[in-house]
Amino acid sequence: MNPLAYTPFIDPIDLHDWWFLLLIPMAFFVACAYKAVRVPSMRKFWPQVISFTIQIVGGIALLGLAAYLVLGYAIPSLAPMPGS
């Protein structure tokens, strides 16, 4: 077997630089499974899935932004490193 050959589901994909994009399909499938047992009527299923997916992705993005602001600005301003 060629050691360089890629086999889906057997070998990992090379998406190390774009790993954060994997949040979107993960949030979508989480929303599908969760809403499948949560919505009382399946008539509302897809609108609920889309809404929940956007909420998850938006929430994680806001958490990421908050972490960036705290680590990049708030903490350095409160406790500046010597020489900075």
Binding site: D11, P25, V30, A33, M42
Partner: peptide
């Protein structure tokens, strides 16, 4: 239909995880 969507979500995540990280 509820069963199909539940399976779609769970197996999508499981197989998606395998697709990303391999077996």
């Amino acid at each position: 239909y509820r069963a199909l969507m539940a399976a779609f979500g769970v197996l999508g995540l499981f197989l998606g995880g395998m697709f990303v990280g391999g077996i």
